[in-house]
Each structure stands twice: as structure tokens, then as C-alpha cells.
Computed example of a mutant assay.
Amino acid sequence: MSDLVLMEVHRSVAVLTLNRPDKLNALSYALVDRLMHLLDMIEDDAALRAVILTGAGRAFSAGADIKEFSESVRQGPDVAVRAFVRRGQALTARMEAFPKPIIAAVNGIAFGGGCEITEAVHLAVASETAVFAKPEIAIGIPPTFGGTQRLSRLAGRKRALEHLLTGDTFSAQRACELGVVNRVVPPDELLPAAFDLAGRILRHSPLTASRIIAAVTRGLNASIAEGLAIESEQFARMVPTHDVREALDAWIGRRKPEYRGC
């Protein structure tokens, strides 16, 4: 099971690689569970400040393991929702609200659940050769890992429905236009671009980054008034911290700040 998701540490960045290349990194139940376990480990490790998520072989992830979840479907809606839907939604919700930045490095096929993970993480860089799709309609189901909700929030209702209702593939450039990814780069520049993005974030206080992620994630589903209250709350939580005092003193003194994450 430990081989389903590989983990390497590069200084303060954890690189997670989905590792079922023979199955196009299909999201089996065991793989999802392993990924959740590693996210728990990373959250608890203060030395790790960001995550890069990518796939082994020619796919980022082709989506859910259809053979596996079809067995759950045959057992009826209660089993299918518990084993398949809740597991997938828990994963994407965990990624969306994760307190450390998660950057997807989309190296190839990102269909179904692979596309939903890309939608859920905080930032994404895609290879020019990456291909996306929302193909669930072809097997008679709607997306179940949050894809009916996040894509419409990122791209708008009509543009999202075009992809959800046709199931057609779309390019990395189209994914960028829809707001699913931030940048599209040549294949050999994918991981360097992801590390560069991580490095630009890690210049700043990890605590402040966490507060920004919390404010954005919680505010997306709130009214503007509620969102502003969330923003104010996150600011108030930062005021008594060392990192705020250090950032202000460093700015005034024109020196590089030394953050503690507290």
C-alpha cells in the first residue's frame, strides 16, 4: 500500500506521486486512503511547508478505479455513497482546506477524479501535453468528488456544464482559461515550475499562508458579508503572532524576515 503514493522531501516541500502508472493512476480506495494518511503526516510535520502532487507515467490520474467502485454500485446506493462518494469527497475537501499550499503538477491525463483533485487543490501547473475531461456522464453518473460544484465555481455555470454534459476532452490551455490550472508549461519544465511557485510562497510566513487559505476556502461558500467577517477573523488571529511583528519590523528595517510560524 505504501507504494501507491510515493513521497519525497525536497527541503521543506513534500512531493507526492500517484503511483499506479499501469492503471493510469486510477484512484482506488486504497490509494485515496494512503493519500489521506500522507496528508495527515505532512500537516503534523512543521518542517514541511508545501506539497506538490503529480503522477507517475503518462497520467496525472485517469479518475476513479471504475472496476472497484462498480462493485460498490452493485451493492446499492448506501454502500456506493459510503465507500465511493464520501471517500472521494473527503479527499478533495481535505485538499481544498489543507492548511499548507498544495500545488498540482499535472503531467498527463487528468480525467474524472484526477480533474476534480486539480480543481480542489490551491494551485496547479499543467504540462502542455496534459489532457482533461469530465467523462462521468459516459458511464451514467454525475461527478462525485466535487466536480459538479467546484468547476462551476471556477469556470462559471455555462462553461462548466459544457464539459460536464458532453464529457469531451479539453486541453491544458483550455483548463487554464477555465481557471482549473494557473499555468501551462513544456513537459520538461513542469516540476521546476511547480517548485518555483512553491518557493515564491515559502518566502512568506507559513502561518499567514495558512490564514489566507482558510479565509479563501471558507469565504467561497459564504455571502460577501460573511466572507468579510471570516477575513477579519483570520487577520485578528494573526495580530498577536511573532510572524506579524517580525514581518513589520523587517519591512521597516529593510531586512529579510525570520519567521517562526507562530
Rank of each mutant, 00 (worst) to 15 (best):
L27C: 02
T169M: 12
L39D: 04
I201G: 00
L4D: 02
E162H: 15
P142Y: 12
T54L: 05
A26W: 06
L16G: 02
I103F: 01
E246T: 07
L228W: 07
K158F: 08
D196P: 00
N19A: 08
D22C: 07
K100F: 00
R218L: 10
I66K: 15
N107G: 03
A105N: 01
V9F: 03
A59L: 08
G88C: 14
L31K: 03
A62D: 09
A120K: 00
L202I: 04
G199A: 12
I102R: 02
R237L: 12
D65M: 09
F98K: 04
D188I: 02
R203W: 10
K134N: 05
A50S: 14
E43A: 14
R153M: 06
D40Y: 15
A133S: 11
E233S: 11
A236H: 14
R174H: 10
R218S: 08
S2T: 07
I42Y: 07
L178Y: 04
R245G: 09
V81Y: 14
L31C: 10
S28L: 07
D40W: 15
Q234G: 01
E258R: 15
R153P: 01
L197A: 05
V51T: 03
M238K: 09
T148D: 09
V73E: 09
V5M: 08
V244Q: 10
D44C: 11
K134G: 00
R153T: 01
R11Q: 15
Q89K: 14
K256S: 05
H37S: 09
L31P: 01
G261R: 06
M36V: 11
R203E: 06
W251F: 09
L16W: 09
M95D: 02
R153C: 01
A175Y: 05
I141V: 15
L48R: 14
C115S: 12
M41I: 13
V121C: 05
T17F: 13
F235N: 05
R11K: 14
A59Y: 08
A30Y: 11
A160H: 11
G167N: 07
D78E: 15
A236L: 13
L178I: 04
R245P: 00
K134R: 11
A120C: 08
I109M: 13
L53C: 04
E258G: 09
L27E: 00
E162W: 12
V239D: 12
R254Q: 10
L248Y: 12
S152H: 08
L228Q: 14
F235H: 12
G227R: 09
T166L: 13
G112H: 08
L6W: 10
Q234S: 04
Q89F: 05
L154V: 03
P257I: 01
A236V: 07
A14G: 05
A110P: 03
A93F: 02
S232A: 06
E226D: 13
T144Q: 13
S223F: 10
F98V: 03
A97G: 06
K67W: 11
A133G: 04
P142A: 15
A130Q: 03
A97K: 10
V121P: 00
A138C: 04
L31T: 05
G261E: 06
